[in-house]
Design a protein around this nucleic acid. Sequence first.
DNA 1: CGGCTTCCTGAACGGCTGTTTAGGATCGGG
DNA 2: CCCGATCCTAAACAGCCGTTCAGGAAGCCG
Lengths: 197, 197
Amino acid sequence: MSDSRRRDILDATAIAIAERGLCETRIADIAEIIGVSPALVLYYFPTKAALLADAMIHLDRLFYESVSDKLEQAPTAEDKLMILIEESCPGPSVEGALPDSWALWPATWEMARHDPALAEARTRLDEAWRSQIVTIVEDGIAAGEFSQIDAKDFSLQLTAMLDGLAMEAMLGDPTVDAARMSELARAFSRRMLKGPV
Amino acid sequence: MSDSRRRDILDATAIAIAERGLCETRIADIAEIIGVSPALVLYYFPTKAALLADAMIHLDRLFYESVSDKLEQAPTAEDKLMILIEESCPGPSVEGALPDSWALWPATWEMARHDPALAEARTRLDEAWRSQIVTIVEDGIAAGEFSQIDAKDFSLQLTAMLDGLAMEAMLGDPTVDAARMSELARAFSRRMLKGPV
DNA sequence: CGGCTTCCTGAACGGCTGTTTAGGATCGGG
DNA sequence: CCCGATCCTAAACAGCCGTTCAGGAAGCCG
């Protein structure tokens, strides 16, 4: 079982879902993206549903790791938070490249409603994500950068807001693009972290 | 074209999607819920995709109208806002009954990515929803209940946060149930509306 | 070299499901 | 009563697509 080929398939699946949509993605589409036969896809994954679920988690993990790396290089808690927000905003979508992980979120949520394994994997990643925020905020409080708020509450509020804003930006809501999304999330953070307790 | 039968089908479609998921919902499932033949469903709707899209908008509109009614009966802006938040939290899901509109949101978002008409309908409803919030907040500011914040920004932040929290609650995230969701949204609103500008 | 494993494919299978069609029932109005 | 419109169904159609299977190429190891 070549591990790189396996990753190829996961990448291709993410691309296919992003471009064609969850329901319209066929195994043949995935195979075509990397130029192999449909049978090979089922050689690496037991079933289509399992592949789809794995691909979503795969893309999420890539995103999580990429952002985690960037966070380490930021000096202050505030810098880290700004990077985290900026990275959460959707960039321009490029045909054939790995999509923003946003593009797969509705599909992930929809599938997770009936796939307990996927739901649990998603929850685990989400918790890791939020705990990053908690750490940043608590460090910021300790350093005197932020006021003493409940970091856990804030992390839940911020991630929820980012999710919601990203959906609107993704769907082309004329009042919410990536810039506005970033602005709103930053304004929220400022208000929560800088104001009087 | 009996209008009530049409509504029956839309209701049944919403139920089917909520229970079986977007991709797994077949026309036969929808027909079975109301005890008619699959052919009849296609007598009222030109195609399956059109039916699915209509059903999502249908449920959204029901939700919007139901909440709008309840809002009218609340005296103060703060009361209205609390009702709006409370109604946004998912209730216990009942087999066979109309689902919370949350249950269809991931499906709606997923479909809207490739269905411009659905995307536009969704945006329109979302704007109506947010403009309700803007009105409430501006009334509250005028009445001296709230501090003078940007109502439009707040409406975007609050709806996004509610969307995001609802997703986590819906997926059974152990740290976010309906009660916690309500608490977090209320805490956010209090902080934004009651603090110093 | 010979055989085993790994990676891969073409082709067939099998079932499912959206959609169409032809026609039956029911009912209201002329 | 008769006719048309409305509402509805059974059955067939048509094509698709996930999955399986039998086997081939390519490399590796003894």
